[in-house]
């Protein structure tokens, strides 16, 4: 094994992850290799500095903040799933409603319309087959009742 292989073992040794056989092999190499002894020393230093860092106390706000946040229950999965479908669907319905509403408004209820205009437009609808949407609108404009038709 070359020195690079032994240095990887040095790293594992510092973490207590070397088996007895490997440990013995590494010790034998360290006795004869200055460079790897220096490596053990410098790697060992990084570990001892890290271990010497004090454990800081957490800010006292953490527990109350976390508890306040989890008081608000997250919607259950089926509500979340339903919302995923329902929200876009509702948006689509509103959008379609606006489109249809806009179409109807433009076609049948122009601003400051005269009765004449409305009648002409409704006569156009009169050509719709009986029982259709246009038919219903015509009947409504004529004051309901189907005796005429």
């Amino acid at each position: 094994m070359d020195c690079d292989g032994f240095r990887k073992m040095i790293s594992r040794r510092l973490d207590g992850e070397l088996g007895d056989a490997e440990l013995e092999k590494l010790e034998r190499h360290l006795k004869v290799c200055d460079a790897c002894r220096r490596c053990l020393e410098s790697f060992g230093e990084t570990v001892s500095i890290h271990k010497s860092l004090i454990e800081v106390s957490p800010p006292p706000s953490i527990v109350p903040s976390v508890m306040a946040a989890i008081e608000e229950p997250e919607p259950a999965w089926w509500v979340r799933g339903w919302l995923k479908v329902a929200v876009p669907a509702a948006a689509l319905i509103v959008l379609l409603g606006l489109q249809v509403g806009g179409f109807l408004t433009e076609t049948f209820v122009p601003p400051q319309q005269g009765d004449e205009v409305a009648v002409i437009e409704l006569e156009y609808l009169d050509e719709y087959p009986p029982g259709s949407f246009g038919d219903v609108l015509v009947m409504a404009s004529e004051g309901g009742g189907d005796e005429e038709r």
Partner: peptide
């Protein structure tokens, strides 16, 4: 993981030199 820790130590040791 072994490999990451080894390379991290090489880098840290070099920077501390």
């Amino acid at each position: 993981v072994e490999s990451i820790l080894f390379r991290a130590r090489e880098r840290l040791a070099e920077k501390l030199e």
